[in-house]
Nucleic acid binder design. Structure first.
Lengths: 338, 338
DNA sequence: CTGAAAGCGCTTACAG
DNA sequence: CTGAAAGCGCTTACAG
């Protein structure tokens, strides 16, 4: 399959069209300054032969592959169907932005030293690299931090720790929106469930925005750190139990991410509380699976179309200093839990 | 970013190591018959210079890109986060199989004539192509059928209609497992909810296996075709209502896919039936979101690791006639709805 | 075991 | 407007 016996080259097209090979190249690239009649003849010949420009030859010459490499960092040992659907949605929006520019998208899921790899740009395979995925895989982010230290450049979603070029949700505003919504619902005993400080900047920002907005109205919030555990859903159930045992008066919970929030929702229901009547819940990410919960999960939804477009634009930006860091707007999606 | 000023070439490495460029190439490719000491010197020089083989030059010479192209067909107008998570899981397992072979994976989401594209192999970008995604997008499958007719070869999941090389779940066995499980649960009024004949071979096979296994024990099944509707979840709710109105005695429902089954579950509950006490439900696909339903969705789960591996193996198989068609085993995953 | 050279299939400066 | 030629960075048959 890789070695079609008769893949035609531009020389074959040239012969058939009765022109030189250089003219074929110019005509097919839409180069101005080619006689319209000649161009038509070349196009016809190419079509008849089923000719397609060889991308390797072309990229080699042009020193550009019109390809973006997308690395998704996974949890070690996690199987592919367990990957947080948020990252698949982000992958999809990056694919859309890539294809809108006529670029290709090379994807790679990485989880451990066995498959860490960052040489997509160095090998010419891609013009730029984007890194997304879980903040919890320290080995992976250390690897990419090191790659960056040795001169490799890329853009990432979230950016745990190191000073990468990043794009993030407007997390503080999201947290504030959650707080304001809870207060408008007359909730007075607000809580936050999310992983402890430092795991992910994004989680920290969400919590800080929430706590600050509550404080601005004279309210405080209790915080529960989910137990270390491989599965966010199970973590959510456990955290909800802990929270409601220690603070039975809780009537509103903002959760750092939807996968965790779905577990929290389950845990709250298992504790015999009605949602949202007794306890309101708001998650973060806008994942589709939230609509399947009962009741459907109210959440803060980042604009993923904007995120995909911005990540690709930042990655392709030639001036490294122009990349910097940037925010994607977030919107409160009222479904059923708040 | 695409144009690093100083990307070193094999000539630079050669100079630094004090050997010829050909020796660099041989040493780095692990070519046998290179002096061990020379090889070490070359490797060291390459490392110091941060040299990485240019994949375009290499692929051009070797006429092979060690890349698989994966096309995912989407519903027109559907946004990326709404793509059936089953296809993302399949994408993940294909990525794993690809990377296990040291291959790259190029992905493309296609939904309408505006972005139909099948020239990945013709342009040399990929050695083989895999097509997955919704069977409901006829325009897309027609496009690929036409591409095949003009000599392009590829492997696909499911294969609606045309005689593609395909991989499918062992759908008949899956349907039979559902039937047997319902009967072991003493259900006597079994139903099937799924799209009508011909939309997808896989759905037909599931229904046929189910009906045949019921018939073998002397039982029949009623079938409900979900209303034409863009959203599987909404279709499921509507179909459940129709079914329970027309056949209130129904105590078991096998549904052609999980996304539809999640809607059916919701619809059944909305009709005031308890699940699984009054009505048992079994879906098909094993998607993760099924575990978030209440109760968690019992389902038939195809072995996705095997599917990813087999799709890649079939795609890469040089002898087209060796590809043919093949089945992935399916397993009953008892969760909560049956 | 190693080097000089051809060639993979393009794109584009250089002539005309 | 078009053609002949150089060159992108590799891999490997061919000599030695």
């Amino acid at each position: 399959m890789s070695n079609r016996p008769l893949r035609p080259t531009s020389f074959d097209v040239a012969e058939k069209a009765g022109v030189s090979q250089s003219t074929v190249s110019r005509a097919l690239r839409g180069n101005s300054g080619v006689n319209a009649e000649t161009r038509a003849r070349v196009s016809a010949a190419a079509r008849e032969l089923g000719y397609v420009v060889d991308r390797h030859a072309s990229s080699l010459r042009l020193k550009s592959s019109e390809t973006i490499a997308l690395v998704t960092i996974c949890r070690p040992g996690e199987d592919r169907s367990a990957i947080n659907p948020f990252y698949f949605a982000l992958l999809g929006s990056i694919a859309a932005a890539t294809s809108a520019r006529g670029f290709n998208l090379l994807v790679s899921f990485q989880e451990s030293a066995a498959n860490f790899r960052a040489d997509f740009v160095a090998s010419g395979l891609a013009d730029a690299m984007i890194v997304i995925g879980t903040a919890t895989n320290h080995a992976a982010w250390d690897y990419f931090a090191q790659a960056q230290a040795s001169g490799l450049d890329f853009v990432c979603w979230g950016s745990p720790g190191a000073p990468f070029h990043w794009l993030r949700s407007d997390n503080r505003s999201g947290g504030a929106l959650a707080a304001q919504h809870f207060l408008s619902l007359r909730r007075r005993h607000c809580a936050f469930i999310g992983p402890s400080v430092g795991i992910s900047r994004q989680f920290d920002e969400r919590r800080d925005g929430y706590v600050a907005a509550l404080a601005a109205q004279g309210f405080t919030s209790v915080t529960v750190d989910p137990p270390a555990n491989t599965d966010r859903y199970a973590q959510g159930i456990a955290a909800a139990r802990t929270l409601l045992s220690q603070h039975p008066e809780t009537d509103a919970i903002f959760v750092s991410s939807d996968m965790l929030a779905l577990g929290v929702l389950q845990g709250v229901k298992e504790m015999g509380r009605r949602v949202p009547a007794d306890v309101a819940i708001i998650g973060f990410d806008g994942i589709r699976a939230g609509t399947l919960a009962e009741p459907p999960l109210t959440t803060l939804e980042p604009d993923l179309d904007a995120a995909g477009e911005a990540l690709v634009a930042m990655a392709l930006e030639d001036q490294a200093h122009m990349r910097g860091r940037s925010r994607v707007p977030v919107q409160l999606l009222l479904r059923g839990t708040a």
